[in-house]
């Protein structure tokens, strides 16, 4: 066999192994028990994507419910140019400073996967750029002793959050540390999942909806009533 045939064989095997790994990850039942038990005083690093507008409002309402002494440090991931979301997060942090006096939080800015009204033709390029930034933050950075990967990532849409999810998933695929992925569907979705909900549903560790009609598979979807 020539060198080329060997290379082709290796490439095929690699692709097949990768595919198999992905299939196992997607079909394996999720762990019945979540992460290992933690003591009440232990901390947990936390990240949330603020998807602007209503997504940001709902995400920050959810974050406001958390114990800020426990979930530190906090990372707010925002889209490029979304100063309003940044401002709202700072407002929440200062309001919460009363109960957790040493706020430890940072912002990470990711290029938008797709701008409103952007043509579908150019979307793959901006989405790729967005993915590179997310992979940089979740995979490459932590490997180079930059800030470690957060232990949990909260997502609630729209588009760019899919990119973050894919980047986090890549870590899982490579066997690296990856955040627990929690998706909360918007309170506004009563009968139909949003596009980001549909995309993220098979990938996340917890898929939570706020209206019981949206629970299609009790092993995968959960509803605990209104969370916002």
């Amino acid at each position: 066999m020539g060198v080329l045939s060997w290379l082709a064989l290796i490439a095929t095997l690699t692709v097949a192994a990768g595919f198999l790994r992905l299939c196992i990850m997607l079909t394996a039942p999720r762990p019945a028990k979540p992460s290992g038990r933690r003591e009440a005083i232990e901390t947990c690093s936390f990240a949330v994507f603020l998807g602007s507008g209503g997504h940001t409002s709902e995400a920050l309402i959810l974050v406001s419910a958390l114990n800020f002494d426990r979930y530190v440090p906090r990372t707010y991931i925002i889209s490029e140019g979304d100063t309003l979301s940044m401002q709202k997060a700072v407002e929440l942090e200062s309001a919460k400073a009363a109960e957790a006096p040493n706020p430890r939080y940072t912002f990470v800015v990711i290029p938008r996967a797709r701008r409103v009204h952007q043509s579908l033709l150019t979307t793959p390029f901006t989405a790729a750029l967005s993915l590179i930034a997310a992979v940089w933050h979740f995979t490459v950075g932590p490997l180079m002793a930059r800030p470690p990967v957060p232990e949990v990532l909260l997502l609630n849409g729209p588009g760019t959050c899919f990119v973050l999810c894919v980047a986090a998933y890549m870590n899982k695929f490579l066997g690296l540390k990856s955040p627990k992925l929690i998706y909360i569907e918007s309170f506004a979705r009563v009968r139909q999942l949003s596009l980001s909900g549909k995309l993220l549903r098979p990938l996340v560790d917890r898929f939570v909806v706020q209206w019981p009609e949206l629970v299609k598979d009790k092993r995968r979807d959960e509803c605990r009533g209104w969370l916002v």
Binding site: P34, S35, G36, R38, A65, Y71, E151, V152, I182
Partner: peptide, 16 residues
């Protein structure tokens, strides 16, 4: 607003 729902959900998921 009932913050305990999401708080409990996340605490439980993260092992608290």
């Amino acid at each position: 607003f009932d913050g305990s729902r999401f708080r409990e959900l996340l605490d439980e998921e993260m092992g608290y």
